[in-house]
Amino acid sequence: MIRLKSASDIEHLHVSGAKLGDVLRQIGEMVSPGVTTRELDRVAELRIRELGAKPAFLHYSGYPATLCVSINEQVIHGIPGHRVLNSGDVVSLDLGLIYEGYYADSAITVACGPVASRDQELIETTRRSLYAGIDAVHVGARLGDIGHAVQQVVEAQGMSVVRDYVGHGVGKELHEDPEVPNYGRAGTGLTLKEGLVIAIEPMVNAGSSAVRVLNDDWTVVTVDGQKSAHFEHTIAVTAQGPVILTRP
């Protein structure tokens, strides 16, 4: 069931989103050679709690951490631990929080030190595809318009959109209806209405779109071993156009 949000709901979601955007920016700035993924996770949880919020991912369906840290061929849901970041790594950070009962969800990908030109292109293409999807959002648009916009940006660079995982609605639950694919045909799918709040989150692979889950039952990796990137914002559909709720 799709739950449209009131103006008051969106104000609350905007507060949650701004807090999340600030924390995620800080974690992104910590990414550097020698830092462990567990250290990133520890600081993410500390900062969220200092803001009077709660981690959204910790213990969600059994997930054991606050932050998802996915490196290189890891696409999403990488579990923080003892792994040390190295120069040249492509590091995706996915984070969520709950503030006064309202969820926010966002992700960024950052380069750890200098990276190869193709890796930088992967990061920038994924970022551009997110904003192309956001630009397609308006009252009366269709879900297929979002996915089509993302897909066009990605495939123009010879890269692939992950199809096994998609965006989603956000509100008083972390994952609500509808699903928001990062591929599709323009003019098809659900019609966007004022008050809809969704997470648009392109996951883009440098090579094939095929992915698999590791034995930890969480970490998703590319089948061909090529690198992946991930960006996400929580977006409100308003009469004035899309509002990015998770901007720092």
Score class of each variant (00 low, 15 high):
151 Q>E: 15
132 A>S: 04
152 Q>N: 11
143 L>Q: 01
134 I>V: 13
146 I>A: 02
164 D>F: 07
130 L>S: 09
170 V>T: 10
153 V>T: 12
148 H>I: 09
147 G>P: 14
162 V>C: 15
164 D>S: 14
172 K>S: 12
135 D>P: 00
144 G>A: 13
130 L>R: 03
129 S>Y: 05
162 V>D: 08
168 H>D: 06
134 I>Y: 11
158 G>K: 10
157 Q>N: 05
133 G>K: 09
132 A>Y: 00
142 R>W: 07
165 Y>I: 12
150 V>F: 11
157 Q>M: 00
153 V>M: 06
128 R>K: 15
133 G>R: 09
144 G>W: 07
167 G>S: 07
149 A>V: 01
149 A>L: 15
161 V>I: 04
167 G>H: 02
169 G>L: 04
131 Y>W: 11
164 D>P: 07
128 R>P: 10
166 V>Q: 08
145 D>I: 04
145 D>Q: 00
135 D>H: 08
162 V>G: 00
135 D>W: 00
136 A>K: 10
131 Y>F: 15
173 E>C: 02
136 A>V: 02
155 E>S: 01
155 E>P: 06
129 S>L: 14
166 V>M: 02
134 I>N: 10
156 A>L: 07
160 S>K: 08
146 I>G: 06
171 G>V: 12
134 I>P: 09
138 H>I: 05
159 M>R: 03
141 A>S: 15
141 A>T: 09
135 D>G: 15
162 V>R: 15
161 V>E: 00
172 K>A: 09
133 G>S: 10
154 V>F: 06
172 K>Y: 14
142 R>P: 12
171 G>M: 05
157 Q>R: 06
139 V>L: 05
147 G>L: 13
156 A>Y: 05
129 S>Q: 13
172 K>C: 03
173 E>Y: 13
160 S>E: 01
149 A>R: 04
141 A>R: 12
154 V>A: 12
141 A>E: 06
146 I>Q: 04
136 A>H: 12
152 Q>C: 03
154 V>K: 07
145 D>E: 13
142 R>D: 10
166 V>C: 13
127 R>E: 14
132 A>L: 01
133 G>V: 02
148 H>F: 14
139 V>A: 02
134 I>K: 10
148 H>G: 07
153 V>K: 14
164 D>V: 03
147 G>E: 11
162 V>L: 13
148 H>C: 08
133 G>Y: 10
141 A>K: 04
165 Y>Q: 07
157 Q>K: 00
156 A>E: 14
159 M>D: 01
152 Q>R: 09
141 A>Q: 13
127 R>F: 10
138 H>C: 04
166 V>D: 01
146 I>Y: 06
131 Y>V: 04
143 L>I: 11
139 V>S: 00
134 I>C: 06
169 G>V: 05
161 V>N: 07
141 A>H: 12
165 Y>L: 09
156 A>D: 11
169 G>A: 04
150 V>T: 14
158 G>Q: 06
146 I>W: 03
158 G>N: 06
166 V>I: 02
137 V>E: 07
163 R>C: 00
140 G>E: 11
130 L>G: 12
163 R>A: 13
135 D>S: 06
128 R>F: 10
140 G>N: 08
130 L>M: 00
167 G>D: 05
147 G>T: 14
168 H>T: 10
167 G>T: 05
164 D>I: 05
155 E>V: 11
142 R>G: 11
169 G>S: 01
155 E>M: 11
167 G>R: 00
144 G>V: 08
169 G>K: 09
